[in-house]
Simulated scan of single mutants.
Amino acid sequence: MSGRQQSSPAHDAHQHTPGVRELTAAASVFSLLSDPTRLQLVWLLTRGEADVTALAAACDAARPAVSQHLAKLRLAELVRARKDGRHVVYALTDGHLRRLVVEAIGHAQHQVSGEPWHD
């Protein structure tokens, strides 16, 4: 058995070198997440679905501002919305975004706390 770790088929699909289109799309995601309120909203959605009222309360922001941020995230297809009675419930569109945000927050926590870096 070799020392090389086997990758899963899901990860093999993402091993090609990105082209201009992929890099531009990724930069757009980072641009949207560069706003602290939008980043917090996406981080909150890593925990599960939530409506605007709950998200506004959790990030201590005005409901109209949260709605505008969610509209931008929805337009970029980073979040999706569904009706639940009179409420609109938001969720992340995929696990890539969830993992990206969780890792970014983990990285930031090491920077802020001074904890040692790790893989």
Rank of each mutant, 00 (worst) to 15 (best):
T53V: 14
E115I: 02
G48F: 04
H69Q: 14
L75N: 08
L75E: 13
Q15P: 01
Q109P: 03
T37M: 04
Q111C: 09
S2Q: 03
L33T: 02
A25E: 12
E115G: 04
D51Y: 07
G85Q: 03
H96V: 10
G95C: 01
R86I: 00
S113L: 05
D84A: 08
E49C: 10
D35R: 07
S7L: 15
S2Y: 02
L100K: 06
V20S: 08
T53G: 10
A56C: 09
L70A: 11
D12I: 10
L55W: 04
V52A: 14
L92N: 04
G48M: 04
Q109T: 10
E77G: 02
Q109M: 13
A61H: 05
V89E: 03
L33S: 03
H14A: 07
T93R: 14
E49F: 03
G114S: 05
D119N: 11
A57M: 10
A54L: 13
A58N: 12
A10T: 14
A50N: 06
A61G: 01
R82S: 09
R86N: 04
L33C: 03
L97G: 06
I105T: 15
D119M: 07
Q15A: 12
A71W: 05
A57H: 11
D35K: 07
R98D: 08
T17H: 01
R80C: 07
C59N: 10
G3Y: 03
R82V: 10
R63A: 14
V112I: 15
H107D: 15
K83I: 00
W43Y: 13
R80L: 08
A62M: 07
G85F: 02
W117R: 15
K83A: 05
A13S: 13
A71Q: 13
T17C: 00
H11N: 12
R38Y: 05
L97A: 07
D60S: 00
T37V: 05
C59L: 07
A26M: 11
V42D: 04
H96Y: 13
L75S: 08
P18D: 01
E49K: 15
G48W: 03
K72I: 02
H87L: 15
A57T: 12
A10C: 07
G114I: 01
T46A: 06
A81L: 10
V29P: 03
R98E: 12
D51E: 11
L44H: 11
S34V: 01
V29L: 12
S8A: 11
V20M: 09
M1C: 09
T46S: 07
A62R: 11
R74I: 00
Q109K: 13
L44T: 05
D12S: 13
L75D: 12
R63I: 11
L33D: 02
V101T: 05
R99C: 01
G106R: 14
H107L: 15
R74C: 07
P18Y: 01
P116R: 15
A81E: 14
S34Q: 14
V89D: 04
A25P: 02
T17K: 00
T17F: 01
W117I: 12
Q68P: 00
Q5P: 03
Q5H: 10
A76C: 07
D60Q: 00
V88H: 09
G19T: 02
A57Q: 14
A10F: 13
T93D: 08
